[in-house]
Design a protein around this nucleic acid. Structure first.
Lengths: 340, 340
DNA sequence: CTGTTAGCGCTTTCAT
DNA sequence: ATGAAAGCGCTAACAG
């Protein structure tokens, strides 16, 4: 069978306590002893049983990552980054995918990560009070990604300001009828961006002295099809917009397809700006707000790990980190003839 | 502190063994006793410590999912489906993302899932002999998704046949110069599709009496940019193709963009067929091979779980399951004027 | 049907 | 610097 700590102890001629200390790099182990233990462990191809260690120590070396979806660019990117950071730190990643309202309810009801994680990381969920409570009742640190809240570690971008920047870009190009294709802010599976990006859109218009026209705000459900349908609707208005700001690149793709596919020109007839800067956006020549997803994920993961390790050298001193975004200007807003 | 099995036992007035049995739904527990235990557990908000249970039972109720990437449609879809199926079965998902050649080497070197999973699920990786050995040396069942191998449980599609179907569609439309945009079959991070889809492409041509032209096979690296660059190259050939078969939809998007963006018409000047049928493909009017990703993932997960549960009512009787694909014909191959 | 009793394989005082 | 021993919170025979 597979080797246990006793086998290593026997082979190294020491006690199991010493093996434990040596293998974990604890102090107060003679170098020669440590070498002997390391040698024996390697000869036996020994790895400690994580469950025994967890039971004895109370630490799980695992963090739970809660996401509303996994098959959307943002969240896939988050999972990728977090998994990597954890792996390097010797931590396991337990993934919790909510999926839909029913899955979400089940999750918060059962709380499947009870007693199995050292910390929790929640990505871009608009959490209800009860859900926040359920999370904090786990008695573990909770990190927030893509949203912030008093008393919690978090990393996010300035969605409001970023959306404002996008719309101001369009205003600067002379557009006055600018439509918004957004997410459903009433959706039970709502995540945070729809709320804030819409606010930024309205802010920008109002600052320019334009009263937001409710007819120009349409749901796109954060999918390409949603963006397509919204655009068809918008372009059929008596007074269609001359520019569209989509709260995500995916919705912008739908918009581009409708416009380009129906013989209209982008941006001459309609300008389009998205949000995210997914890889496909460069290909689509889409002007968009680039947000540093990996940076946000890495930042919050690192600080969460530091907090757990109690090597908390200021990890919580600056609990809410806001990372900068950047407007990437491409042809969908300024055209190919751009000279600068 | 949080309740343990002893607290429940005391409250219910039974032994901890009875609590254990009652809570796990084992037989030979009087209904009244079970009710009392359930009541006590719920009052104390008790959940068993998974680590103690794992240590005592040897079962981990966890499966390890190994993927080369998480931010590609296919794999995101797989993760989504597997996570869901496991959650319902009360299993945890431990995600292992290889990422790149270095990450892959580290993974197989360290074997981080040793002693922590009941089974392993590997998605679409071209595994070397040594890697297969490393996996089987875990001493746990290994399931394969997107590939098959003698002696392993697997679920996949017929990549060769599906690619042949796609190319035969183009041949049926009268095309003779059909290009292939594919993946790198020599890449250390190679996954299985590139190999087989290329074979299917060549098969179809040869069956039609056409000798595959190496100039018409170009790398697209399974990304939109790769597809774009490959298409630019192909269209600059002295004798450009009249049709393109891309081994993935993402590469096909790049092709479509180049063709449509440069004033050529799809499919009149160049027809395009992809592979996968991602959600964006309908929007792009892309003819493509639809593969049932969720079905594959669900199928293999279910059978792996059955195998672990030893409720193996035939789970392994049919170890290699091949799921059907379907050609979804859209405008990128037949045009808008299609009458049927 | 239920209780007793060994462990599972580690970590962690507490001695020495 | 090292070892002995007491758990960690369960599961699984084995009795009864």
């Amino acid at each position: 069978m597979v080797a246990s700590i006793e086998d290593v102890a026997r082979r190294a001629g020491v006690s199991i306590a010493t093996v434990s200390r040596a293998l974990r790099g604890l102090p107060d182990v003679a170098t020669s002893t440590r070498d002997r233990v390391l040698q024996a462990a390697s000869e036996l191809d020994y790895v400690a049983s994580p469950f025994a260690a967890r039971l004895a120590s109370g630490r799980t070396a695992t963090i739970g990552l809660v996401v509303p979806f996994v098959n959307r660019w943002f969240f896939a990117e988050v999972i990728d980054t977090v998994e990597n950071a954890l792996r390097r730190a010797g931590f396991d990643l337990l993934l919790y995918n909510l999926g839909d309202a029913e899955g979400r309810a089940r999750f918060f009801d059962v709380m499947p990560m009870r007693k199995r994680v050292d910390a929790v990381l929640v990505a871009s969920l608009v959490l209800e009070e009860a859900e926040f409570t359920a999370l904090t009742d786990l008695g573990r640190p909770v990190g927030l990604l893509g949203l912030q809240r008093e008393g919690f570690l978090s990393a996010c971008i300035d969605d409001v300001g970023s959306a404002r920047m996008a719309v101001e870009h369009l205003l600067g190009l002379g557009h006055r009828r600018i439509a918004l294709i957004g997410g459903d802010t009433d959706d039970p599976m709502a995540f945070t961006p729809p709320l804030h990006r819409r606010d930024g859109y309205r802010d920008a218009l109002q600052s320019a002295g334009i009263e937001p026209d409710p007819d120009l705000e349409h749901l796109g459900y954060f999918t390409p099809e949603g963006g397509r349908d919204a655009t068809r609707y918008l372009m059929s208005l008596p007074e269609p917009p001359t520019a569209i700001f989509a709260e995500s690149d995916e919705m912008a793709y739908g918009a581009l397809r409708v416009i380009r596919g129906s013989g209209m020109r982008v941006p001459e007839d309609v300008a389009v700006v998205g949000f995210d800067d997914q890889p496909l956006s460069e290909l689509m020549d889409l002007t968009t707000v680039r947000q540093p997803v990996a940076d946000q994920a890495l930042d919050i993961t690192t600080r969460l790990l530091a907090l757990i390790a109690e090597a908390d050298d200021g990890a919580t001193r600056d609990p809410a980190v806001v990372l900068p975004t950047e407007l990437v200007i491409r042809e969908s807003s300024v055209g190919a003839a751009r000279t600068d």
